[in-house]
Design a protein around this nucleic acid. Structure first.
Lengths: 197, 197
DNA sequence: TCACTGTGAGACAGATTGACTCACAAATCA
DNA sequence: TGATTTGTGAGTCAATCTGTCTCACAGTGA
């Protein structure tokens, strides 16, 4: 990767614009993110926003990406204990995901992706990235659970994600409920029963 | 309900507008549904669209509602056999729901609801309607399955919907996969295992 | 036949969009 | 330090979209 020297002014205004864009996204959904609104909110000239993101989609994708940082890995002790108790690591990731879905900003991102990813190429890519992120977070724990005999040995991380993340998304975006730890734990246990050897 | 006499001209243009609106929704998502676009597509004056739906939300809700008719009940023989084999009725409804989600028009409706139901009151209501529709379709079959001893007796239609509809929505809108009968059947079986007595 | 009413076409102001200038100040480099 | 480069903010402009209004007309029901 070639060393890109960035003008501090560029960096400064870009950061202000991205922050403004994610705020707008959280407050009013994807439609609220426009060059004009971002410029006003970031205290920046309208032309500057156009200079950084000539097309609206790019601007919105920047807001979406900034609003959904990757999940953090489980703490060392949980991962270490994973051989003895694979459930704990699964619960860790899915509770974290649950909190994310409950969070207004990340919730708005996922809602936008769910709603808009069929027609748009950039959105498609973001959807794929998000999905990979989630499934890969779960993969080690699923593998450990299979090795430990808690899950059937033909269970993939993809299948397990479907039976856990699916219900969480349903509960959050269709039922409109908040995702407490009890809900998440129940979903994990239900999935463990469904895929028990 | 008082007998409303409707001017045939009203009925005609209303039908044309609703049809145009759902087409636009399918083709370009909720954002593509505007008074102007509907007027042009329906071959109708712009003022006419405003006359029927003074605000944009109402117009879009009309498009959404028209694009998502209720699920049809299981055929008589499936329902009759439900005592002996509750799984068949569950499969019937969820296959139907799967086909709906695969369908571009209904898929666009659900995607819009998933993506936009947090901020908007009208959307909230539509989301609730949709949810009730889905859960109530499943309820008799779930009750039958509980009675027949195929499901734990504390399983509600709501909980069962979460573990079946959730994965289908996930598979369709996050993974981006089409929902074949095999996928749906696998989801049903997985849910039956998860909630087995 | 005749009054009524929903309609299509168009005019209109206001807002938004995207492209374009231009002076200025911050950043870079000698 | 001082000269030059370059990103920026403010503004202009045409094109488009939105929401409201008027008006002639034709389909409707009596």
């Amino acid at each position: 990767m070639p060393e890109e020297r960035a003008d501090p002014r560029q960096v400064r205004s870009r950061e202000a614009m991205v922050a403004a864009a994610t705020t707008l996204l959280t407050e009013g959904g994807l439609e609220a993110v426009s060059h004009q609104a971002v410029a006003a909110r970031a205290g920046v000239g309208r032309a500057t926003v156009y200079r950084h993101w000539p097309d609206l989609l790019g601007l919105r994708l920047a807001a979406l990406e900034a609003g959904m940082p990757p999940l953090s890995p489980a703490p060392e002790d949980v991962r270490a204990a994973s051989g003895a108790d694979p459930r704990a690591e699964l619960v860790h990731y899915l509770r974290q995901l649950g909190e994310r879905l409950d969070d207004a900003q990340a919730g708005a991102v996922l809602a936008a992706v769910l709603g808009g990813a069929q027609r748009d190429d950039g959105m498609q890519h973001l959807r794929r990235t998000l999905l990979t992120q989630i499934v890969d977070s779960l993969r080690p724990a699923v593998t450990a659970a299979v090795a430990r005999g808690r899950l059937r040995d033909d269970v993939t991380a993809e299948a397990f994600a479907m039976t856990t993340v699916g219900p969480l998304v349903y509960q959050r975006f269709l039922v409109g409920a908040r995702l407490g730890h009890d809900t998440v734990d129940a979903v994990v246990d239900s999935a463990l029963r469904a895929w028990a050897p």
